[in-house]
């Protein structure tokens, strides 16, 4: 007879990192360590979610996140169904609720959802009876991205406690920034946000972060620079004069890094606009963890899928 230490996340869903406890984050990161080992096996696949069906509901174009989730699901032997439908948030036609209810009627076990509207997965969680995993909701949260970022940093530094992280770029429209800030703060890191003042949201101190509009000052003491992707449409909407000026003011270049006392780790959620957020030699440099982030993304997503897949209401 074997006694298992069983653990569950406090929530049935993974909707965001705001309010997630340190214990839960640690459980996910620790579990991800075991899954990363699986990815290195000759057959990088385990039968754990055999017979489970996971639907990837992507209402917004996404290549890497969807591929990462799909790979994680397949490595766990789940059956996966992809539903991609790029929609504007107010497009007419079948409602989100109807779409979801239809898919649920096909007896699925979990939904991974990407949507352009903040709160869309929260809404879905109220409509459906299966665990919902938020793969990005508008500018709100992108919890698995932040978890893989934290995993990558923990792998490098051993702990996140006291780490000085500077997030650079469009904070206003970034779900990655929001989830990373929540997660990193919970894990004891110090976070500074830096970017053009038009792209820093009002009352950003509500997150408990420092704000600095001067990149050279902001990275003075940084252990990690996390560059966010700049969407080109910010120019046309009047928030940014030009990507040239952005690169000049906020782009991470070797010249900018050279005078720093500490060696700074470079991260980016991808895809990179080379020559805008990051100079190519920085993105590909030895202190860049960008490709580690991608690999770790699969392990972290496997861990989350695993932890959320325990069934409710059945006896152990």
């Amino acid at each position: 007879m074997r006694r298992w230490r069983t653990l569950a996340l406090k929530s049935r869903h993974l909707l965001g990192l705001e309010g997630m406890s340190k214990e839960d984050i640690e459980l996910i990161l620790d579990t991800a360590t075991s899954f990363k080992e699986i990815l290195e096996r000759p057959i990088p696949k385990v039968p754990t979610l055999r017979g489970k069906t996971i639907v990837n509901l992507f209402f917004e174009a996404s290549t890497r996140t969807r591929i990462s989730f799909e790979l994680a699901e397949k490595r766990l032997s789940a059956d996966t169904v992809n539903f991609s439908k790029a929609t504007s948030s107010v497009q007419k036609g079948e409602t989100l609720k109807d779409t979801a209810r239809n898919i649920e009627a096909m007896k699925i076990d979990m939904v991974v959802m990407r949507h352009s509207a903040p709160g869309a997965p929260h809404f879905l969680a109220r409509c459906l009876d299966v665990p919902i995993l938020n793969a990005g909701d508008g500018a709100h949260e992108h919890p698995t991205q932040a978890l893989l970022d934290m995993y990558t940093l923990r792998e490098k530094y051993g702990t996140l406690e006291g780490l000085n992280v500077v997030i650079v770029g469009d904070i206003s429209h970034s779900r990655v920034a929001r989830s990373d800030i929540w997660g990193l703060k919970t894990m004891g890191a110090r976070v500074t946000v830096c970017g053009p003042s038009t792209l820093i949201p009002v009352e950003v101190d509500a997150f408990g972060v420092n704000v600095n509009y001067n990149i050279d000052e902001a990275i003075q003491d940084a252990d990690v620079i996390y560059a966010l992707r700049i969407q080109m449409e910010r120019q046309t909407s009047g928030l940014l004069p030009s990507s040239r000026e952005y690169h000049h003011r906020f782009g991470i270049t070797q010249e900018r890094l050279r005078p720093l006392k500490k060696r700074v780790t470079i991260m980016h959620p991808g895809p990179i606009n080379r020559g805008v957020e990051l100079a190519s030699d920085v993105a590909d440099g030895e202190h860049s963890l960008i490709l580690d982030q991608v690999l770790n993304g699969v392990a972290v997503r496997m861990a989350v899928l695993y932890l959320l897949s325990g069934e409710e209401g059945t006896v152990e």
Partner: peptide, 15 residues
């Protein structure tokens, strides 16, 4: 409303 909550929730604010 644009303010602390819109910043936290990532919803577009009306100042």
């Amino acid at each position: 409303n644009e303010g602390r909550m819109s910043t936290l929730l990532g919803l577009r604010g009306m100042p």
